[in-house]
């Protein structure tokens, strides 16, 4: 049996590839109560000089993906990405991270928990690029206990930053002459340096200038864009501040 476990560990290790980034997992609470919710985070630290990608990688690259293996009854109800850097290399615009960053997941705990403790497992896949690109993969896990909700882990508070502020009112948009015309509402006070980036690929021309016409932000569409969704999530980065917005037609 021990031999079998050892073999499984070796095989798992071989299947993983952590040459270009280190992966960590963190929990907001060590002990969670039935019917409650909590947050867990995946940390990604690219090797020096390398970068990994945001939800929308930009012109090229690949978004980091996290596949959760959760015990029965637990579910993910929200995801928050930290604000990425805008990386320009060889005339290609990418959205990603050169340094340690986190993806946060809200976990809903069922009303009834069968076990005293449970393990949540995450398989993380990423693409890291420098002058060249290499795919990476790692599996990480964390054990949570059931009971009265515990104190917040102070380490978690330290990492919970650089996240976009959520804007409640959706932004109305229309398309004119191959440009998205996004009406910026009063709730959003942004400068003319603001950069609009959809969470999904292929909508906008990532290299094109974005500019204001009255209260509308004009963003050029990708020359080869497909059908534009009737609503989609986007990030607006304005200097040190960023906003999560919902764009609707």
């Amino acid at each position: 049996m021990m031999y079998f476990s050892f073999l499984i560990s070796v095989l798992l290790y071989m299947a993983n590839n952590t040459e270009t980034a280190k992966i960590s997992v963190h929990a907001l609470h060590n002990t969670v109560a039935a019917g409650d919710s909590t947050w867990v985070a995946i940390g990604i630290t690219p090797k020096d000089g390398w970068h990994t990608y945001w939800a929308n990688p930009g012109d090229a690259g690949l978004a980091t993906t996290v596949e959760w293996n959760l015990p029965k009854g637990l579910s993910l109800v929200d995801t928050i990405w930290q604000t990425p850097e805008i990386i320009e290399t060889e005339e290609i615009i990418s959205y990603g991270f050169h340094h340690t960053h986190y993806i946060f997941y809200k976990l809903a705990i069922p009303d009834k928990l069968d076990n005293q403790n449970f393990e949540i497992i995450a398989t993380v896949k990423w693409l890291a690029c420098k002058e060249k690109c290499l795919p990476g993969k790692d599996t990480v896990s964390i054990k949570l206990f059931s009971g009265n909700r515990s104190e917040i882990n102070s380490n978690f508070s330290k990492i919970f930053g650089n996240i976009p502020k959520r804007i409640s009112n959706p932004l109305r948009t229309s398309i004119k002459d191959n440009y998205l015309q996004i009406e910026i509402n009063e709730e959003l006070k942004i400068s003319d340096k603001a950069r609009f980036i959809p969470y999904i690929e292929g909508i906008i021309d990532n290299s094109a200038d974005q500019f204001f016409q009255g209260r509308s932000l004009l963003v050029r569409l990708d020359a080869f864009h497909g059908e534009i969704p009737k609503e989609f999530k986007a990030l607006i980065i304005d200097n040190e501040i960023s906003y999560d917005v919902l764009v609707i037609f």
Partner: peptide
């Protein structure tokens, strides 16, 4: 007719 390409960036 159109899809979003994926891959490494073209190394211009």
């Amino acid at each position: 007719k159109v899809t979003q390409p994926y891959g490494c960036s073209v190394k211009y």
